[in-house]
Amino acid sequence: MSMQELIIDTQNLQKKYITDTVETTALAGVDLKIKRGEFVAIMGPSGCGKSTLLNILGMLDSPSSGSFKFLGQEVANVSERQRAKLRKENLGFVFQSFNLIDELTVEENIALPLAYLGFSKSETEKRTLQAMERMGIAHRRSHFPQQLSGGQQQRAAIARAVVSEPALILADEPTGNLDSVHGREVMQLLSELNDAGTTVVMVTHSPTDAEYAHRIVNLFDGQIVTENLNVKRHAAELL
């Protein structure tokens, strides 16, 4: 069954940053397996390597050593072009600071991934509208990001992340810049996406947010120190 298929499988993943004078180890051998359909939260103190790990999982960065299999395919050392291709076909990103393009409207921002995938105009319009409606921001479609509240911006960003129907969504502190009401809204949206079958990997500081995940991975000094199943979530699902 597809639930058992590994979407992410890393072995002894390491990342070192070398500057003129110092060598910093960001990841010191991470073994992480994530199954399709899982919702995983990565937690840990600042500087523990959470973001580095997420960047590598999102193929925005490559590891210094170790193995990273994405959907069974080794991607640790593939070319930049290949990574771009894997990203656009399989991944969606949500950031703490939303990262919408200021010069594009909400609708144009959301349509962007489809443009790089080469969708037709009508298909793009259809899918963009669907994503906007799903996130409840269709009424702000022709606004520019600065005209939106933080919550609306993040919903637009999530709409952009899901518009291409990726297998995996990577979220980097998605509620970090939001108040608790909007934060909860965003977490519910991610949770709904996960319920619909999308794998979600989220980096967070917030224990409340982590509650939405099936599994919580705790990172410290570049290593996984504990992995906890979220009993509450599992219980909810079983009910």
Partner: peptide, 16 residues
């Protein structure tokens, strides 16, 4: 820079 980063995130390669 942000725009470039974003375009890459959503799948643009360098030549684009």
């Amino acid at each position: 820079a942000k725009e470039v980063g974003l375009r890459k995130v959503v799948g643009a390669d360098r030549s684009q």
